[in-house]
Amino acid sequence: MSEVMIDVQNLKKYFPTSNKEKPVKAVDDITFQIFKGETLGVVGESGCGKSTTGRLVLNLIEPTEGTVSFKGQELTHLKRKAMRAMRGEMQIIFQDPYASLDPRKTVFQILAEPYQIHHPEMGRDEIYANVTRLIDCVGLRPEHIYRYPHEFSGGQRQRVGIARAIALNPEFVVCDEPVSALDVSIQAQVINLMQDIKKEFNLTYMFISHDLRIIKHFCDRVMVMYLGNIVEMGTKKAIYEKRRHPYTKALLSAIPNIKSEDHSKRILLTGDIPSPVNPPSGCPFHPRCSYCMDICKKEKPCLRTMADGTQVACHLEMD
């Protein structure tokens, strides 16, 4: 097994609500690792805690309990200054590049900022050289650097967002729904770009998405989340072929398929995702699960490791 880059142990994030007894359990006790050089896909529906997990991993928000370590260094209690020094090594690409890029700055100013903060010794010429190199890397043209974010199309803006993320040569990048706001033909362009950049910069990705087709294409391992919990985690092959957890089964069968006419195998879930303020007792998925047994209503299943290494949180018998 290769080197562990991110180690998350028993991570919890509760957001307080007006009722002190009932916080929103956005992330409720999850443990996982991300290995050097891999792409871990995090998939789930709205409110499952996938974005919160991404922010916790980067220590952008403080966990309620649990720890996150980056290359053996625990981030959770790091001082502000020490954390800032780490930021260059771990970066994030946001969903909506229009909201995450300062509208009053030119692309040059946006991309120069990381160098000015982390490498104050760098002169203007060197920064300029770095920025033009970045712009070229993400497939934009040199004349683009004096433009403002609003002058770009969505896909180009996301390229600027990617350039910003890789400016400091990070080792680890969290991609939070990086292509969800883009048109399909542009999505493909950006996905390919992210693949190229991963190779060129030896990146490790945590790729958060609700799009199961893109996760399948892009990731090595997949973590399926539901209501703040990990319900299944394993290699892409194991997740998409074996589909052990009933939620994974339903989720994968819900993907609209353009190639076959057979939709009969679709598992239609009834009901909505419960509120994380008031999660169901026992297994969080039990009210929507067609295999629900008595034990599921009482006892929350732990992640069990299968013979092929896949972890599944379910009371059902499985290999």
Binding site: S153, G155, D183, V184, S185, I186, Q187, A188, Q189, I191, N192, Q195, L212, R213, I214, K216, H217, F218, Y240, L252, I255, N257, I258, K259
Partner: peptide
């Protein structure tokens, strides 16, 4: 054709998505 190629297929494995270059 380009639009269809841009969508990764869950039943198939490709190294790289074939894309439509350029913009509308």
């Amino acid at each position: 054709i380009g639009l269809m190629n841009s969508i990764p297929d869950v039943n198939e494995e490709v190294d790289r998505l074939r894309t439509l270059e350029g913009l509308v």
